[in-house]
Simulated scan of single mutants.
Amino acid sequence: MDLNRTLRSHDLTPGEVAHRSGVAVSALHYYEREGLITSVRTAGNQRRYHRDVLRRVAFIRVSQGVGVSLAEIRDALATLPEGRTPTKADWARLSRTWRSSLDDRIARLERLRDTLDDCIGCGCLSLKSCTLANPGDVLEQYGDGPVRLVGRG
């Protein structure tokens, strides 16, 4: 909880945020424990969320949906202003910081898509050697696992 934030008359209850964002109240509490969103407390110690949390929750959901870790999401959200809805410029700045990482992730996914059918029949992705895709076990020097798919080989 951010102690610098004040309660506003148009703040949302956890149920309202859950309904509007499509996430469970328990997820909101988890996001808050993880430092991804913040709330303020009423005199009765009930949580209330400023409306800008809706965009943050949407960002969290979309980011998680494409495989971004919560740590990366937390770091990104830390660059956004507190207490107000981020502007287009705020989001553009955040986007620039993720561009390289997302490009790398896209390249890995494309490599997986384009090479996965080589091993679909035998399921050897967890083995160190494969006489079909790795004759002579030449990839052994890179270690166990799917070295062709993770860019080590």
Rank of each mutant, 00 (worst) to 15 (best):
L125S: 06
S26Q: 10
L125F: 14
V62A: 09
R84T: 12
D2S: 06
T97C: 05
S100T: 14
L12I: 01
S126D: 13
R93H: 12
R152H: 00
L54T: 03
M1W: 15
H50V: 02
L127T: 06
A43E: 14
G153E: 00
A24L: 15
R47P: 02
G15R: 04
T42V: 07
W91N: 04
G143W: 03
E34F: 12
T38S: 09
S126K: 12
C119I: 11
R56T: 01
R8G: 09
H19D: 11
K128P: 10
E140R: 12
V62D: 08
E140N: 07
G121S: 14
S9C: 10
Y142P: 01
S69N: 07
A18T: 03
L116M: 10
Y31S: 01
D117A: 14
R84L: 12
D52I: 06
H50S: 09
N134I: 00
G121V: 15
G121R: 14
R48M: 00
R93S: 12
D144Y: 13
R5F: 15
V40F: 07
V150W: 13
R20M: 08
P14A: 01
H29T: 01
Q64H: 09
N45G: 01
T79C: 00
F59D: 04
L80I: 08
D117S: 15
D114N: 08
E34W: 11
P81Y: 05
N4Q: 10
G151C: 06
L7Q: 03
L132N: 15
L116I: 10
D11V: 02
L132P: 13
S21Q: 03
G145V: 02
S101A: 13
E34T: 06
S69V: 05
G136W: 00
T115A: 08
V147K: 08
G151W: 09
H50C: 00
E34V: 07
C124I: 11
R8N: 14
R20S: 01
L7F: 07
E32T: 05
H19T: 09
G67V: 05
R33E: 08
A92C: 11
T115P: 00
T87W: 11
Y31G: 03
D104H: 15
I37Q: 03
R61A: 05
A92W: 11
N134W: 06
R51H: 11
A89R: 11
P86T: 06
R41E: 01
S95D: 15
I60L: 04
T87K: 11
T38D: 06
C130F: 06
S100E: 11
Q141F: 00
L94H: 08
R148M: 10
A58R: 04
L94C: 12
R33K: 13
G15F: 01
E34Q: 09
L102E: 03
D90C: 12
D103A: 11
S9W: 09
V25L: 01
R51D: 04
S9F: 12
